[in-house]
Design a protein around this nucleic acid. Sequence first.
DNA 1: GTTCCGCATGAATCGATAG
DNA 2: ACTATCGATTCATGCGGAA
Lengths: 270, 270
Amino acid sequence: MPKLKTNIVLGDSIKELKKLPANSVDLIFTSPPYADSRVKTYGGIKADKYVDWFKPYGKELLRVLKEDGTFVLNIKEKVVDGERHTYVLELILAMREMGWLWTEEYIWHKRNSFPGKWPNRFRDSWERLIQFNKNKRFKMNQQAVMVPMGDWANTRLKNLSKKDLTRDESKVGSGFGKKISNWLNKDMAYPTNVLHMATECGNKSHSAAFPENLPEWFIRLFTDEGDVVLDPFLGSGTTSKVAQRLNRNSIGIEILPEYYEIAVKSVKGK
Amino acid sequence: MPKLKTNIVLGDSIKELKKLPANSVDLIFTSPPYADSRVKTYGGIKADKYVDWFKPYGKELLRVLKEDGTFVLNIKEKVVDGERHTYVLELILAMREMGWLWTEEYIWHKRNSFPGKWPNRFRDSWERLIQFNKNKRFKMNQQAVMVPMGDWANTRLKNLSKKDLTRDESKVGSGFGKKISNWLNKDMAYPTNVLHMATECGNKSHSAAFPENLPEWFIRLFTDEGDVVLDPFLGSGTTSKVAQRLNRNSIGIEILPEYYEIAVKSVKGK
DNA sequence: GTTCCGCATGAATCGATAG
DNA sequence: ACTATCGATTCATGCGGAA
C-alpha cells in the first residue's frame, strides 16, 4: 500500500478548498460551527445569516467531491426565541438548489445530552447527520458497519472499546472474507439510520464536538482503504485522526490556530 | 367528574373541523396520510402537492386549538427518486407562515423497524414528531412522563457525603453550583426529546400507524384529565382509544368508512 | 488486579438584570 | 426596544484514586 497522507491545513476552507482538484475527495465528514455557538472562538454565525454563510462552502465542496462520493453534515438547530430555528431546513433546500441531492438523514442519539430543565422543553438529545450526494449512485460498503445481532444500542455501541474494534477488524480482514455471506446472515445484522453514541466526556485532555465512533462509522461505510476523507471544519482533529487510524488519506482544514495546533498534535500523537 | 365524550366522526376534517368552536381543543395528535402512501385508500397525495394539500387543515387546526394547546404531527418524508423528499421541511416552513410556532422536534426511534435492504440506504428506523404551538407558553406536565433514572443515580445517590449535603459553593469561574441533596429520594429523571418505542406487532387485524404508547406519552404530557384531544386523521382509532383510557375527551375524524368502522369498534370495545 | 466511588464537565436553555 | 452577560437548572460519562 502506498504511504498515506494526513494533511492538516491552517486556513479558511473557501480559500483552501480552491487549491484542491475537482472530483478528488471520496467522503466529506464535518461538523461546522453551529449558529451562535462557540462565539468566543469562531465569532458566532448569526442564525438568520447561517445559510448565506454556508453557501460558498457548499459550492466548493460540491466541486471537490468525486462523482460517487458522499458528504455527511453533522448539525443541529438552536432554540431561538422559544422556537427551533429553521436554518437547517433552509440549508437543506439551499443545498439542493446548488445541485446536491439530499439522500438521507441519519439521527445521532446522544445518550448523554446536556442536562437542564426548562418550563416548556426537555433536554435535546439528538443531532442530524445529513447525507448529501452528487449522484443517485454512490459508494457504500454496507457490510463494513454491520453489527452483532441483537440490540445495536445494548451491544456494540454502548462501549465501543478497542477490544471490540480489533475483534471486528479481524473478522472482516480474515479469510472469512470469502464466505462473508455465511456468517453475515447468522451473526451480523445491518444497522439502521439511528446511531446511539455518547458524546465524549470533558475530562479528557481535549474534548471534541463528536466522539471518534461517529466519523469512524461513516468512514467505514462510505470509503475504502486508501480513499480520501475531507473535513473542512476540522476543529480538534477527530476526523483526521480516525481517518489515519483506518488507513484513509485525509485533508483537514481549520481556521483557528489553537484548534489547528491541537489537531496536528492529535494526529502525530497517534 | 363529568361524563367523558369520545366522539368519532365520519367525514373530511376540513368540513368537520369548521363545526368545532375556536379555541376548544387542548391537544391535536395525528399522523396524516403520508405522501404517496395508502394510495388505494386515501388516493395518494402526491409528494409535490403535499404542502398545498395540508395547508387548509393546518389553518382550521390553528383555529380550533386553545391558546395554550399543542399540535403534535407524526410524519416522515418518503424517498422519491433516490432522495428524501423535502415536503416535510417545506411543511414546517409553511406552518410558520400560517402563524404556527415550531417549538420542538421529537424523534420516535422505532426499535423494531420494518426489515429490508437496499443498495444505498439502511432501514428507516425513525420518524419525526413535530411540535407546533400557538404561543410560547403552553400547558406541559413534565412530571407525568418522567422515567426511571439510570445506574448513575443508584450508585451516586446511595451514599451522600457530608459535602454533598450542604450546598457546594460555585468554584472559581467554571464550577457548577451543585445541590446534590435535592436529588435525594429521586429515582426518576426527566426524559429527553428522543422516544424509544417499538412499532406494534403485525398480528393485529388492522395495523395502526403508531403504537398506543406514542399518543399516550403526548396526551399525558400536554393534557390533564377532562381535556380535549383531537385527531383529524384518526385512521384505526388509536388516539381516541388512548384518550378514552386516560380519561380525556376526544374527537376523532376519519374520512374512510372502513377505518371509521374500525375506530368505532376499537373505542366501544374498551 | 478488579471493582467501586468521587468528581468535573458538556454544540443547552430560560429568565432576570444590566448597558 | 434591543442586545449582552450571568446565574440556575440537571444527568450521563470516563477518568483516577480508593477499597
